[in-house]
């Protein structure tokens, strides 16, 4: 179980190898990799800058990872989230989950990326092709999820 918040890129293959090395109880590994898209809201995106809340970001990522560990029998998991300036095609986020069986790995991976979107304090500033900068609005479904912040853990989605 680990989380990392970093400016640098990551190598998904190496991360999977490192996470699973030596644990032969693992029967399945699931991963999600988020990339910067070149189109948002019908407009071309030249680049984006991810800002975050150092300290709280790591804390929230550790909390959601611990929650996944309570809900599914995971052998290992990793969340890596980048910040700083990124261009279309760049990797933003990596989630890896490993379990004895595929269902737990796949479901926990989906849960982690869904929860991360509404619980980890990151904000995206997009630059359009023309050089104009604007803060990305949270989507309506993200807003609905935001209302669940104050509920105790374990009564949220993915159950």
């Amino acid at each position: 179980m680990a989380v990392r918040v970093q400016r640098e890129d990551f190598d998904p293959g190496r991360e999977i190898e490192a996470l699973t090395a030596g644990d032969t109880a693992i029967g399945g590994v699931a991963s999600f990799i988020g990339l910067v898209r070149d189109i948002a809201g019908g407009e071309r995106v030249g680049a984006m800058t991810l800002e975050h809340y150092p300290g709280m970001t790591e804390k929230m990522l550790r909390e959601i990872e611990a929650e996944a560990g309570r809900r599914w029998p995971l052998q290992a998991s990793l969340i890596v989230h980048r910040y700083g300036r990124l261009e279309p095609g760049d990797r933003i986020v990596l989630v890896i989950t490993a379990s004895a069986h595929r269902d737990a790995a796949l479901e926990a991976c989906h849960f982690l990326i869904d929860w991360l979107k509404t619980k980890a304090p990151f904000w995206k500033l997009e630059e359009t092709g023309g050089g104009e900068k604007r803060w990305v609005d949270a989507r309506a479904d993200d807003d609905a999820a935001a209302g669940r912040w104050v509920r105790p853990a374990g009564k949220n989605a993915a159950e």
């Binding site: 988020g34 991810l50 975050h52 809340y53 300290g55 709280m56 804390k59 989230h81 933003i92 986020v93 990326i113 991360l116 979107k117 509404t118 619980k119 980890a120 304090p121 990151f122 904000w123 995206k124 803060w135 990305v136 609005d137 949270a138 993200d142 807003d143 935001a146 912040w149 104050v150």
Partner: peptide, 30 residues
Amino acid sequence: RVAVNQEFATADAHVSQGDEIALFPPMTGG
């Protein structure tokens, strides 16, 4: 959105000297 001492908080959450209060828009990570 608000966090008090790095925990999400609502409008009625208590604040006092020594607290760290963060104010930000809805999050857009991932």
